[in-house]
């Protein structure tokens, strides 16, 4: 089949297609040293110190979902991108692209929860923009947020995955797949009457307590593409293998059952309140204890380890003792989940 010259939905799914698009178009043209790090936030030298700078757009459908709405999500997403880069989030900009006909009362509800979440995360919204487009030119409401945070010297390289060694442990701060499944259930007519809710939450306070009290080698928030995609990117970057124990991965029963019915792997499903942490083995228990003290980390678990075997690959040990490679998500599993 000849090469196709148009954008497919899959190009936005956080999987391999999107990765190729970023490399082949964006990095090719924009390419500079800071961008090429491909981290969640750019770490910028400002005077004698460093700032973290990031941006994210939110096009989620539906606007309101169990566990949150697009406003709350727009704060959490950007705050978390700063926090996993080792930054203390300080300021946000918020831009609205609004479709003609949106209910003003809906917009206000969204703005209220955006405000509440910013307060909760301890960030100030200091600038913004509003555009209204004709009906049909966007879907109800799109939001962009850009965030700025300060970075302590000792946290500057957290997102670069330096010093990772075989034996290091991989930790996640709770159940995975809740956001993606909550959204899917709200969008489609499955009639799963379930209490599955989005895990959408600002993790900056939780992350701060971990990096201040212990030692972290790498952090990333597993949003689109899920934990599997984060781990695959990490394995590729450090040129080592990763081994995950399926029975150790925390998954809510409702999420697990929905995944069984629909044929999804929870490791590929999006999260909006989760962080994947890599730390030295001897720090693992200490980090778990710190995480578990916070409600956002109550179900934290060590889910696997870095290994010298199968470089660049993520291997899952399953409940029956079988082993298989877990890839990044390819193509589009769940459209417009953030």
């Amino acid at each position: 089949m000849p090469n196709f010259d148009k954008i497919l939905l899959g190009h936005g799914s956080g999987g391999r297609l999107m990765h190729d698009l970023i490399t082949d178009i964006f990095i090719k043209h924009f390419g500079n040293k800071i961008l090429s790090e491909e981290t969640d936030s750019a770490i910028l030298p400002v005077g004698s110190s460093h700032m973290a700078f990031t941006t994210d757009s939110f096009v989620i459908d539906p606007l309101f979902f169990p566990g949150g709405n697009i406003g709350k999500l727009a704060v959490c997403g950007t705050v978390n991108d700063l926090a996993v880069s080792g930054a203390i989030p300080l300021y946000l900009s918020v831009s609205f692209i609004i479709e003609e006909g949106l209910l003003i009362s809906d917009l206000e509800k969204i703005v209220e929860s955006l405000t509440a979440e910013a307060k909760n995360a301890g960030v100030l919204i200091v600038t913004g923009d509003t555009k209204v487009v004709n009906r049909g030119k966007c879907d109800k409401l799109f939001i962009n947020t850009t965030g700025l945070g300060s970075v302590r010297e000792e946290d500057r390289f957290i997102s670069q995955a330096r010093d990772i060694r075989p034996g290091d442990v991989i930790i996640v701060n709770g159940t995975i797949g809740d956001h993606g499944m909550a959204i899917l259930n709200a969008r489609e007519s499955f009639n799963f009457k379930t209490t599955v809710e989005s895990d959408c939450a600002s993790l900056n306070h939780l992350i701060r307590s971990v990096i201040e009290k212990s030692a972290v080698k790498f952090m990333r928030d597993p949003t689109r593409g899920g934990v599997a995609t984060v781990l695959n990117e990490l394995a590729g970057k450090i040129g080592m293998g990763i081994e995950i124990d399926e029975t150790a991965v925390p998954v809510n029963r409702g999420v697990q059952a929905m995944c069984e019915i629909l044929g999804f792997d929870p490791l590929h499903v999006a999260n909006e309140g989760k962080v994947v942490i890599v730390a030295a083995e001897e720090k693992g228990q200490e980090i778990l204890e710190i995480l578990r003290r916070d409600p956002l980390g109550a179900r934290s678990a060590i889910i696997g380890q870095i290994t010298g075997d199968h470089a660049g690959k993520v291997v899952l040990k399953n409940e029956t003792g079988g082993r298989r490679i877990i890839d990044s998500l390819s193509g589009d599993q769940l459209p417009r989940i953030c």
């Binding site: 499955f190 009639n191 799963f192 009457k193 379930t194 209490t195 029963r253 409702g254 697990q256 059952a257 929905m258 069984e260 019915i261 409940e319 029956t320 003792g321």
Partner: peptide, 24 residues
């Protein structure tokens, strides 16, 4: 058919019974 939290729970219990390592 409506899926309730309980029936989703039951689905998992039902599935897990047939995934027990010792049995296999």
């Amino acid at each position: 058919m409506k899926w309730t939290e309980t029936s989703l729970n039951e689905i998992m219990k039902y599935i897990e019974e047939y995934r027990k390592r010792d049995l296999i």
